[in-house]
């Protein structure tokens, strides 16, 4: 394998809660190869969402760095952050976070507008992605007219629209039923098989079991990092204490 698409190095984040420092992340390091389908699990407050927001450039670490495609994104100037977010990262959120006034098509389109993609190209790509997500006949519906699964698939199409290096999914199945959950996980897995790198933060062990690698977090640190064989046989990758 070549250069990892994502390198997290000695990442720490300390919040001040009043006068008490809270160590949300404590010296976290790991690499992710291109095309990996990886889940980050752990109890509430273990630091998994904080980790995701650091990788997604939504928040700045106290120390350490995140490298995407060998670029240290955590060192980027404020003005360069939007461009990095557009080019390197695609987000999928628990609450879908679609813009309620826009149709499924427009929700995908709008992400490409921010990347200054020409209109004709945007249209082609949005139709292609939504069709791939099985939403060809739902494109002109607003989020309120779509089921949870359809909304999440729209959000996935949106996340893919700008060809990001990594897809970051924060509890993507948190608000859907088990049938939809399985469908979404299957979709994400297929995408990783196509070469997309996907990081999923989840509470749901059933989701984690479907990914190729599980990082378990506790108290801001990596407790374990295991590779998963497709038929649910678990094989340790490396273990951190």
């Amino acid at each position: 394998m070549g250069e990892p698409v994502l390198r997290v190095r000695n990442l720490s984040k300390t919040y001040m809660q009043g006068k008490i420092p809270v160590h949300a992340l404590n010296d976290v390091s790991f690499d992710v190869e291109k095309g990996e389908f990886l889940s980050i699990v752990g109890p509430s407050g273990s630091g998994k969402s904080t980790l995701l927001s650091m990788i997604g450039l939504l928040d700045k670490p106290t120390s350490g760095g995140v490298f995407i495609d060998s670029v240290e994104v955590t060192k980027a100037r404020e003005g360069d952050v939007p461009k990095l977010r557009r080019e390197k990262i695609g987000f999928v959120f628990q609450h879908f976070n679609l813009i309620p006034t826009l149709t499924a098509f427009e929700n995908v389109d709008v992400a490409m507008r921010f990347a200054r993609v020409p209109k004709s190209e945007r249209k082609k790509r949005a139709v292609e992605l939504l069709t791939q997500m099985g939403l060809a006949d739902r494109m002109n519906h607003k989020p309120s007219e779509l089921s949870g699964g359809e909304q999440q698939r729209t959000a996935i199409a949106r996340a893919l629209s700008n060809h990001p290096a990594i897809i970051l999914a924060d509890e993507p199945t948190g608000e859907v039923d088990t049938k939809t959950r399985d469908m979404i996980v299957k979709l994400l897995r297929e995408l990783s098989e196509e070469g997309h790198t996907i990081l999923v933060v989840t509470h749901d062990t059933a989701v984690a079991q479907q990914t190729g690698r599980i990082i378990t977090m506790r108290d801001g640190m990596i407790e374990s990092d295991k590779r998963v064989i497709i038929d649910n046989d678990i094989e340790p990758a490396s273990t951190h204490s």
Partner: peptide, 14 residues
Amino acid sequence: TREFGLMKAMGAEV
């Protein structure tokens, strides 16, 4: 608020 946050997460410039 959330919508603008989302737009920024999608890479919208100021």
